[in-house]
């Protein structure tokens, strides 16, 4: 089975490289990091934190655009343009099609996130090299901090989850609606933690019950955001990282299974 996932994944990666969208996004991310560097010059003592914070936020935001827009285009473009007719009449099951498309986009995301992270580390290395030892000693965390990689890992898992949501919606919905639903779910998921204690602020029992159900059903995207801790040099336990990655992985698996079940019965008129 894996035989036919790989060619599809490679094709997705190649297509995304030939589409100029990821390049543009990476360029924007790099520009944003450069802007944060300039901003840092104006803020005495806080520059390294601003660079880290803006750099991670830019990686997350531009990754999100790649995940949503390319994630949705993966399936819907094939169906709309009917190139799927050529593909699904080869020895490719629909489950392999979904898995291959998803794997390809994960590789695309990984490469993009890696480029953005490398750019961020380069700026940080330059800053560290430029600053005198007494300024460096006042920092909460080292300039080129390996702990940033923990935050980058969770950003990647978050983007992988967003991609799975986009792919899930695009198996049965139009591209526009899929984009709206995916972004809507991402925003709702960002505020998921607030739903947990919703019963403390509302009196209506059904509303509190609904909030609790939503809290359990919606993905908790705030769990993936550890930028603040990393920037301020606060430790993130390996246990937290592992549990959050496992949470994201389980959610992704469930979404891909659901996408496969829906896609397996779909008519391509």
């Amino acid at each position: 089975m894996s035989v036919n996932i790989k060619p599809i994944a490679v094709h997705v990666f190649r297509e995304s490289v030939r589409d100029r969208v990821p390049y543009t996004l990476v360029l924007f991310a790099v520009l944003l990091i450069a802007a944060s560097f300039l901003l840092g010059q104006l803020t005495a003592g806080q520059d390294i934190k601003i660079i880290k914070d803006l750099g991670l936020a830019a990686t997350s935001l531009f990754g999100l655009f790649i995940a949503v827009f390319i994630g949705i285009a993966l399936v819907s473009k094939e169906v709309e343009r009917r190139s799927i007719y050529g593909l699904l009449t080869k020895p490719v099951s629909r489950a392999q099609f979904i898995a291959g498309k998803y794997a390809g986009l994960l590789v695309t995301l990984a490469v993009n996130v890696a480029i953005m992270t490398a750019a961020l580390y380069l700026v940080l290395a330059y800053m560290t090299w430029q600053e005198p030892a007494n300024v460096r000693a006042a920092w909460d965390a080292p300039g080129v901090d390996p702990a940033l990689l923990g935050a980058v890992l969770l950003i990647f898992v978050e983007l992988a989850l967003v991609t799975a949501i986009a792919l899930f919606f695009s198996t049965f919905s139009t591209p526009m609606l899929s984009a709206a639903l995916t972004l809507g779910l991402w925003i709702a998921g960002r505020f998921n933690a607030d739903l947990r204690n919703f019963d403390a602020v509302v009196e209506s029992a059904p509303a509190a019950w609904l909030a609790r159900v939503l809290y359990h059903v919606l993905p908790d995207f705030s769990a993936f955001d550890v930028k603040l801790q990393v920037v301020h040099g606060l430790p993130i336990s390996a246990g937290y990282l592992a549990a959050t990655v496992a949470y994201g992985g389980a959610y992704i698996l469930a979404l891909l299974l659901a996408a496969t079940v829906i896609f397996a019965r779909r008519d391509f008129k």
Partner: peptide
């Protein structure tokens, strides 16, 4: 080449 790979 892409389709050929799918045929193994």
């Amino acid at each position: 080449h892409y389709f050929g790979e799918l045929f193994g």
